[in-house]
């Protein structure tokens, strides 16, 4: 009797049924707590929502009017373009910067671990503080960066990093890249550490140089981590808000305005809740595409 039960227990633990069960916990958790809010926003995006009717769900249905209004808004093109530049720039620079640092600190030299640990400090600062500090550093008249550039004779006059519409997006990108690099670095470092060393030794015996080994071994084997990181960084940049809010408020003349900033402005400053929800739905669509690409990459992931 006891043996029989034990067997059943073992079989249950071994069965295919454990997969949906295991995935289920986390998925249901998210579906429960985030599913409703996401649907709530989707519904708001096709309704006329005011402070007066926000407390009920039954608000006038307006179809795609909120979306149409957004697309017709002259701001749409600007914000779309800014978001595109901001996200691409951030994802590329954060990833490349993170990878370069991860590879560098992988080398065995005294203090490598210590310095790598220190760099993570950038990721620990609250966004409010990062925004404030970078605003100081980038200030045109008494900012440290201009001061250094002028001291080194690289530029003659001040650069209006944040107050020139031509450079404000670059300014906030600086700050956000600085913030995101440690995150990329540490995850890539962990990924690198997980790679089997014997393959490198074999490749080295075959006469492959470090560059060959990087492209032939490291990159392919690191692929799962890389795709995951790229997808996550894209999403995090898509919803970056605090830094820009603290540094420029989206200005001057909306030159650093991106989707999450616009969504917040519409919802909580103009009380256009339908519009704010519609912007966030557009963000959802973009991320849906990113997620599809990512899932494809997971599908083709080689099983080691």
């Amino acid at each position: 009797m006891k043996g029989h039960q034990r067997l059943r227990w073992e079989r249950a633990l071994d069965s295919e049924a454990i997969w949906p069960l295991m995935a289920g916990f986390g998925a249901l958790y998210l579906a429960f707590f985030v599913g409703y809010p996401v649907i709530y926003n989707l519904i708001m995006s096709v309704q006329q929502v005011t402070l007066g009717n926000i407390s009920t769900v039954f608000r006038p249905f307006v179809g795609l009017d909120n979306y149409r209004k957004l697309v017709d808004d002259p701001l749409f093109a600007t914000v779309f373009q800014n978001t595109l530049i901001f996200v691409t720039g951030n994802v590329a620079l954060q990833f490349l910067g993170g990878l370069a640092l991860a590879l560098f600190f992988q080398a065995a030299f005294p203090g490598a671990a210590f310095f790598r640990g220190m760099i993570l400090a950038g990721w620990i600062l609250p966004p409010l503080v990062i925004g404030a500090v970078w605003k100081w550093l980038l200030a045109s008249d008494n900012g440290v960066i201009n001061y250094a550039l002028r001291g080194l004779g690289i530029v003659s006059g001040p650069i209006y990093w944040l107050s020139d519409p031509a450079t404000s997006l670059i300014g906030v990108t600086f700050a956000n890249v600085w913030f995101g690099v440690p995150f990329n670095m540490i995850l890539l470092a962990a990924g690198l550490a997980g790679l089997p060393q014997d393959m490198y030794e074999a490749a080295a015996l075959d006469g492959a140089g470090p560059v060959r080994r990087f492209f032939a071994l490291t990159l392919p084997m690191l692929q799962p981590t890389i795709y995951a990181l790229l997808a996550l960084t894209t999403i995090y940049t898509m919803r970056a808000f605090d830094l820009i809010w603290t540094m420029t408020h989206g200005g001057p003349v909306d030159s650093s305005n991106i989707f999450p900033v616009w969504s917040y402005h519409l919802s909580f400053e103009l009380f256009d809740f339908g519009g704010g929800a519609a912007v966030s739905t557009m963000m959802l669509v973009v991320v849906f595409i990113v997620a599809l690409i990512y899932v494809r990459s997971v599908r083709t992931e080689r099983v080691s």
Binding site: K135, S140, D141, N142, L162, S163, D164, G251
Partner: peptide, 21 residues
């Protein structure tokens, strides 16, 4: 006037004034 009037808040402009800017 500094072009930073475009991005600095009121108290930040006053901070610059306090610093003699």
């Amino acid at each position: 006037a500094s072009r930073d009037v475009l991005v600095k808040r009121q108290f930040e402009m006053t901070s610059s004034w306090l610093a003699g800017a």
